[in-house]
Design a protein around this nucleic acid. Sequence first.
DNA 1: GCCGTTTTCGGCCCGACTGTTTTCAGTCG
Length: 573
Amino acid sequence: MPIHNMEIADQFNRLADLLELEGANPFRVRAYRNAARTVGGLPQSVTDMLKRGKPLTDLPGIGEDLAGKIAAVCKTGHLPLLEEIEKRLPPALTELMQIEGLGPKRVKALHRQLKIESLKDLERAARSGRIAELKGFGPKTQAAILERLGRHTGQVHRVRLADAEQIVKPLLEHLSAAPGMEEVVVAGSFRRRMETVGDIDILAITARAAAAMDRFVSYEDVVEVSSQGETRASVRLRSGLNVDLRVVPRSSYGAALYYFTGSKAHSIAVRRIAIKKGYKVNEYGIYRGSRRVGGRTEAEIFDRLGLSFIPPELRENRGEIEAAQEGRLPVLITLDDIRGDLHCHTKATDGHDTLQAMAEAARSRGYEYMAITDHSRHVAMAHGLDRKRLLQQIRAIDRLNEKLDGFVVLKAIELDILADGSLDLPDDVLKELDLTVCSVHYKFDLPRRQQTERILRAMNHRYFSILGHATGRLINEREGYEVDLERILEEAAKTGCIIELNAQPTRLDISDVYCKLAKELGVKIAISTDSHTTDNLDFMRFGVDQARRGWLEAGDVVNTRRLPELRKLLRRA
DNA sequence: GCCGTTTTCGGCCCGACTGTTTTCAGTCG
């Protein structure tokens, strides 16, 4: 049973928590957290890296010691240092640190002085009033602990980006109406266009900070004001989402936007460069000594530090800073680069709109082509097309194309990859199509090796064009099936198969790190909406966001091409 | 624990807010 990256990351994070409780060197703690983040975000499994003899010390923030520990976990499943510390400290103490407002120092004090080892202990102590008596604690802290305990579910909840957008939009409108408000923007992971966000960071430019604060905390969806100062406030919304507002003057706009966009790892790395160059960067500006030398725009900061402008989507400290130093940042794809959509359904299966309506909707978005990819027969739930109905649809598309001027509907299908890796319809009908999107819809529970072989076998079929939603995950709803995506991408590089980036906000499949790996391997990506209504075509922008996070340029994406060029890419040797 | 245009030791990002204090530690982002 190979150890997954996430398991290693979990062990390191737990170790970091416990070390922090023990009062270890905070930079040592950070090293473990960084390692957890690095390993957790890798597109390939470290088990495989080790097998292939790739040195783990090549990974940023992984030195000899951590490389050895990672290798040990891969080999044995155990991290001896973690187990050693768990003998000294109750492992459940790390749960206490999940409670907002409880950090290592307070948890340590609660453990030492009140023998609190679990959430249950914590609740009992708070109810009995013993916490308020501790030095450094008080009645307010005790009440806050009780209140947050009641809300604690044990899991961090992240909201899908598209859902966050719907929550944020009316709030921005509300804030914009504050007297003296000059500008309101969202920073944080929302601006970096992460597939999910944990909270919302809003930046407001105004000379009247107090008015902005008042307007913010009085928003109708606010259920709790967690903190409120002169320039900063935090609230919790009815939806459960936390929102931070930060007010800055116009002159600090760029510095503040940069700082609050993050990511944290990116900010730390850039500030380190700033220090080396004799600067200090904070949310008010960039300074040489006590003299402020910039910060009105983000560009001023990048310029000072000798970096080219790094788009927010890349700010994850995954190589973008080095690329910016060397002037080799990618020119990221934009929505305007997209010329068509290659995965769309109609009423013929589980879509809601007609062939013609879909075509017109695509055309009205400025596209030059779209592929109609209804389901194949095996997806019975969606009344998948059999040979006869597919041929009917092909003829209907031919008739429609005769009427359309300057727009082409491509004949295609979303073809089920059967459990043995064969495709759901015979070659004699597939050969009539312009392309196929081949996807897994059943048998999610195959063992990883078998699932991978299933897809690899399908990919070697002569009429296989694009692999649809490659992992089958639904964000916040279900994990994808177990599959070796790195091997699939390597095979795609060999065979010329295209990999889909499914733009449905609940899918965004494949993820950003796999987009980057695909690019590095030379694999072409199709960003497709998997539309089931005409409105769904607008999901393209979420796909483009994800592609940008994955470093993709227009040239990496097939549906940025004009039709003749696309056809060439689809024609396989 | 990592890392090197401060280079193998001695640094490691930086400020706001809260609740507890009587000048600040702890937490958070």
